[in-house]
Simulated assay, not measured.
Amino acid sequence: MKKLMSKSALVTGASRGIGRSIALRLAKDGAVVAVHYGSNAAAAEDTVREIRAGGGTAFAVGADLSSIEGIHTLFEALDASLLEHTGSNRLDIIVNNAGIGQTLPIEETTEQSLDEVMNLHLKAPLFIIQQALPRLNDEGRIINISSAVTRIAFPGLLAYSVSKGAVNTLTHVLAQHLGNRRITVNAILPGIIDTEMNAGMLQNPDGQSFAAGLSTLGRWGQPEDVADIAAFLASPDSRWITGQLLDASGGSRL
């Protein structure tokens, strides 16, 4: 039996990369999946088509998550589509994955560049969760995508790292806050994953050697490596795990 049958899930940034793989995997496990996208509607619809071709149920919702107005837009569209597909606007699973890459050391960091990553990596998950709580069923699952850069120092990723560190704190605090509803809150901390964000590095031999050399397993990660962890955290099997930061870096720099 599929472990997520009758469950509904929102995956932000699900048109490509890690988010796409998570959406595909949750749908494979039986969830009705809202595939959020920021700007690439065509890619989101491709994800939806692939899910439907595999016998799953999904729909796309577009919204700019960098502002509270965009988050309100997200939930207006989400409520309508969930009602259409499930008969209710209730949610069971939230995966906060939407994000951007930013390579800047402290000397080049500006107020604008800091706001850019903080708005999408921290403010968006916080207010998405806030707006979702009245819709989220008890025993629900919140999964935040953080990063191994909160454990491994990369000075060229300063603001990005700080924003993901804030996600870790958000995860910890909300796990305590929502425990009385048996809602679990956990974060996944990927290392270098083969996505568009890391394409520049992984397209040249030096970058490939660096990425593979970080992990004790001798390779860089694939989106499916993270999606499988998210599927476990979304399932009933993870019921006794909350407030945790799950390193998904293949043992990078142990």
Rank of each mutant, 00 (worst) to 15 (best):
S8F: 04
A9Q: 01
I18N: 02
G19F: 05
A31M: 10
V32F: 00
H36W: 06
S39K: 14
N40L: 07
A41Q: 14
A43M: 08
A44N: 07
E45Y: 10
V48D: 00
V48T: 00
D64T: 11
L65Q: 07
S66E: 15
S67A: 13
I68A: 15
L82D: 04
S88T: 14
N89D: 15
N96W: 13
L104Q: 14
L104A: 13
T109D: 11
T110N: 05
E111A: 13
S113M: 06
L114T: 12
H121I: 11
K123E: 05
L126Y: 15
I129L: 04
N137P: 03
D138C: 05
R141H: 09
I142Q: 07
I143R: 05
N144C: 10
V149E: 00
A153H: 09
F154Y: 12
P155R: 01
L157T: 02
L157C: 08
A159D: 10
A166H: 04
L174Y: 04
A175W: 02
A175H: 01
H177A: 15
I183T: 04
T184F: 02
V185E: 01
G191K: 08
E196P: 07
E196F: 09
M197T: 15
N198K: 04
G207D: 06
S209Q: 14
S209C: 02
S215L: 07
G218Y: 03
G218N: 00
P236N: 00
I241R: 03
G243Q: 03
G243W: 00
A248C: 14
S249N: 10
G250W: 03
